[in-house]
Design a protein around this nucleic acid. Structure first.
Lengths: 112, 112
DNA sequence: AGCTTCCCATCGCCTATCGATGGAAGTATC
DNA sequence: GATACTTCCATCGATAGGCGATGGGAAGCT
């Protein structure tokens, strides 16, 4: 394990946002979401399944997503999650808030 | 309180970074740090003292900062925190890591 | 038969933030 | 010289969210 780049945790509070964003183009199953995040982020974002599934439960409970069982591309039993209209609104709201906070942090980091 | 902009929490995990960054130009006391963050961020970052002091304890314990008692500008008893060399290194490291993660998140937010 | 990959899910720990609370010391007001 | 406000310190308890460890089952390859 001589290689440098550590897996790195993600910023708490952003997981919901990331998951919702993943579902924007269409339904996905949990495993797929994790893979996608890892892939798109070039292995920076390593979302463990023990983080992901509780998050999905949360989203379900809040009505941001709905779930239904189906078969995966590989013909396996998989649970597909889909954004609800409320979920879309939530996503928009969280993106805004995220931008707001990040902007504020940047100001601090770049202040005199 | 009719105005819209909610106080908004900050991203957990970034507090140390923000505090360290605040101390980069020179020593400050706790209250001053909180005020500065609020001011520079245009009231977006509202760091409560109950978040701040534990954070400072943490930084002390890790040797990122040192503290000494003195008198504030208003002639009050105040504890001034100063960055140590290790603290400077830590700051640099956390900035890098932060950039890395933020970059990754942006990629996700902007993906197809 | 055994191994790997895919896909689900939970439990318990730990850490960090937050609201509430409290106190002491200066400054201003009347 | 009493009252009140601001500055500045600090802790405690509740809460939440992510993570490591763990477990299982089904498909497919060798």
């Amino acid at each position: 394990m001589g290689s440098s780049t550590k897996p790195s945790d993600l910023l708490p509070g952003t997981l919901d946002l990331l998951v919702l964003r993943c579902l924007l183009p269409g339904s996905m199953h949990g495993y797929g979401i994790a893979s996608r995040l890892k892939q798109v982020s070039n292995d920076v974002l390593q979302v463990g399944e023990s983080s992901l599934y509780p998050a999905l439960q949360r989203l379900l409970l809040n009505g941001w997503v709905k779930a239904e069982w189906g078969a995966s591309e590989n013909n396996r039993r998989a649970r597909y999650y889909t954004l609800t209209p409320a979920g879309r609104r939530q996503l928009a709201s969280e993106r805004e808030e995220f931008a707001r906070v990040i902007g504020a942090i940047q100001k601090v980091l770049e202040m005199a």
